[in-house]
Amino acid sequence: MAETIRLAVAVLGNAASVALYAAPMVTFRRVIRKKSTEEFSCFPYIIGLLNCLLFTWYGLPVVSYKWENFPLVTVNGVGIVLELSYVLIYFWYASAKGKVKVAMTAIPVLLVFSIIAAVSAFAFHDNHHRKLLVGSIGLGVSVTMYGSPLIVMKKVIQTKSVEFMPLPLSMCSFLATVLWLIYGLLIRDIFVAGPSAVGTPLGILQLVLYCKYRKGSVVEDPSKGDLEKGNLEKVEMEIGKVEMNVTNHMNGHS
């Protein structure tokens, strides 16, 4: 029975997390259409890639005991594919200066992961110490990414509008954090539950802010016709940034 519950929570957590990993597709459809990275930053996606690499490695039998953390491998494996795709798309459409910045950030990050993987595999000879090393670093990376939702919430408070904090993303964020917190507690793994222990209160705060400021959102009057093209592009860019921030916030939950 306990095993069935753990599996059910893991499956639901995987589904919620994958939905959030896929959220930036809207942003990158814009990048491809405009053939420009505009004001978007690639840094969150590179850090997200590092986080997914760390927790995929953490879930593999090299670090964990056999396949006890298989759900981490599945969800973060999908995360690696998506985050890497975002980074490559960004690199392709970035300016020459932007390409240099991406390379100067991505190469050291991948090098750091390679060192961590090598040390954990060859310097330690038991799963306990390997999990302690990789899990501690992964936990640290995850927790540092919780600044992104705070930026979104600050914008909501300043504008008194939830226009740029979509309810579906906030709900998925909240559900994913709760599910991974429960899963981490069920398997008694602080490195799995830890990020969500921080993320769950933030998810609740997002929903509270949504309930408080949702009436302040601007509702389009159909009689006024379509918005000007420039305003539409501005709104699209802002929503893309919010999706990036919320998704980045979720990278550590899995």
Rank of each mutant, 00 (worst) to 15 (best):
I5S: 11
R6S: 13
L7M: 12
A10N: 03
V11A: 14
G13D: 11
N14L: 07
A15F: 06
A16L: 13
S17N: 14
V18M: 14
L20K: 10
M25G: 06
F28Y: 15
V31I: 15
V31L: 05
I32S: 11
R33E: 11
S36M: 08
T37Y: 03
S41M: 10
F43Q: 05
F43D: 12
P44I: 12
P44S: 11
I46W: 02
G48I: 05
L50P: 00
C52N: 15
G59S: 07
L60D: 06
L60N: 08
Y65D: 14
E68W: 02
F70R: 04
V73C: 08
N76A: 07
G77Y: 07
V78R: 00
V78S: 10
I80P: 14
I80T: 08
L82M: 15
L84W: 10
S85K: 01
Y86S: 02
I89H: 06
Y93K: 05
A94V: 04
K99I: 11
M104F: 09
P108V: 09
V109T: 14
V112L: 09
V112D: 01
S114M: 12
I116G: 00
A117R: 10
F122Y: 15
F124W: 09
D126A: 00
N127D: 11
N127R: 06
K131D: 00
L132A: 11
G135A: 10
S136T: 15
S142C: 14
T144K: 02
T144Y: 07
I151F: 10
V156R: 03
T159L: 12
K160V: 01
M165W: 05
P168C: 03
M171H: 01
C172D: 10
F174K: 00
L175E: 03
A176Q: 12
V178S: 10
L179G: 08
I182V: 15
Y183Q: 09
G184R: 06
R188S: 11
R188M: 12
I190P: 02
F191E: 09
T200C: 14
V208R: 12
L209S: 02
K212H: 04
V218I: 09
V218K: 10
V219M: 09
V219R: 10
E220C: 05
D221F: 01
S223K: 11
K224T: 14
N231S: 15
N231F: 11
K234Q: 13
K234A: 08
V235D: 07
G240K: 10
V242N: 13
V246I: 11
H253E: 02
H253Q: 13
H253W: 02
